[in-house]
Simulated assay, not measured.
Amino acid sequence: MVTVAQVSIFARTLPRAYEVVVRDRLKFRVGKIVFLAFSRDETTMGFGFPKEERAALVEANPEKFFLPSASDMRFHWVEAYLDQLGEEEMRELVLDAWRMCVPKKVAAAYRA
């Protein structure tokens, strides 16, 4: 199980990522692109994820992942229950979401 605090600490380490609060929800952005967001009650985490792969992710782990609201289906986005995620899995999901938003050279420099 991971907490919002653990996710936030990791997300703050990513180059060009910054934290904002929008309508009482904590979100992380790169530029104007949101790559990570938490529900108001801090039980779920939404993150950037390839549209073409999200159905398979949700079907494989419905106790852990779920599709976003109908209005957010147009975005590259999926949701997860924080109490179902381990720390290593959370780091991988957040890092992949961040990589979708930054220039390739920034992601490559972070890997190095």
Rank of each mutant, 00 (worst) to 15 (best):
T3V: 03
A5L: 15
V7Y: 00
A11R: 12
A11L: 14
A17L: 11
Y18M: 07
E19Y: 11
V20D: 12
V20P: 02
V20C: 08
V22G: 07
D24N: 12
R25G: 03
L26I: 11
K27P: 05
K27F: 01
F28C: 05
V30M: 03
G31T: 05
K32G: 09
L36T: 12
A37F: 00
A37R: 15
T43R: 07
M45K: 01
M45R: 05
G46N: 12
F47H: 02
F49A: 04
F49H: 13
P50M: 06
E52K: 10
E53I: 04
R54L: 05
R54E: 10
A55V: 09
A56W: 01
A56L: 07
V58N: 06
E59C: 04
E63L: 12
F66G: 13
L67G: 01
L67F: 03
L67A: 14
A70R: 15
S71N: 15
S71Y: 15
R74Y: 06
F75I: 13
W77F: 03
D83I: 07
Q84N: 05
E87F: 05
E87C: 04
E88L: 07
E88R: 10
E88V: 13
E89L: 02
E89G: 02
M90W: 00
M90R: 00
R91C: 02
R91P: 01
R91L: 01
L93H: 07
L95C: 00
D96P: 03
W98K: 04
W98S: 02
M100P: 10
M100C: 06
M100Y: 10
K105Q: 03
A108Q: 07
Y110V: 11
A112H: 12
